[in-house]
Design a protein around this nucleic acid. Structure first.
Lengths: 109, 109
DNA sequence: ACTCGGTACTCAGTGTTACTATCTACCGGT
DNA sequence: ACCGGTAGATAGTAACACTGAGTACCGAGT
């Protein structure tokens, strides 16, 4: 994947992950797999975990340790009220940006 | 403007500026003004100049000094072939991302 | 019993990017 | 002579995703 994608993901990936958590709670490994399946091909594992730590510290998600049948216990993240508010704001910002940029593409004005 | 916007702009602003230059050549101050008028309200002046230096060093634009009636000479930037190629790639990346994210918004899948 | 592959998470260090704040410089009008 | 608007440059900072390595746990095959 290009460097462009990498840079564009900044500030977007966080919203994407929160959007995933809005559908249903999930744990890091699962989210990474989901992203890979859905076209965000080359997102490093470490990136997702680091991001989850950040959103946890910001208080946007609740965490629950769940023992796994294979491997170490899973940290299952779920969106809380504050996270939902943040996500709503994210969609607002995204809509605004996407609109401006699509406008820019067809016609330059 | 929120911190979210700031972070989202990373990797996008460069494409936006190149898209502006694709329509017609322009200089830094002009680009800043254009951005302000078109809703990218709080982009600091220094940001645009730094960005222009970057794209110039990457060889994506040609530069021409044009004496101004007011103030110091303008550095007029115009998109060259390499810049056009980069811009095309940017649109490709953007389309991909925008599609995934819009998909994510309505329904989570 | 022992390795091996898959699952799951952690962490230190790096590079890119936009912001802030400040500075230089030129011009016309008062 | 000064001031506001035009035009550009620069040093330092913070945020974010990446790289690369490491830890740990389990079940199946040999």
């Amino acid at each position: 994947m290009g460097k462009q994608m990498t840079e564009m993901l900044k500030g977007i990936l966080e919203g994407v992950v929160l959007a995933i958590l809005a559908v249903r709670p999930a744990y890091g490994y699962e989210i990474t797999a989901w992203l890979r399946e859905h076209g965000f091909a080359d997102i490093a594992e470490g990136t997702v975990y680091a991001l989850l730590v950040r959103v946890e510290q910001k208080g946007l998600v609740d965490v629950e340790k769940v023992p796994s049948e294979k491997g170490p216990p899973r940290k299952v993240y779920s969106l809380n009220a504050q996270g939902q508010a943040y996500l709503d704001e994210f969609w607002g910002t995204w809509s605004f940006l996407a609109e401006r940029i699509d406008q820019l593409r067809d016609g330059g004005r």
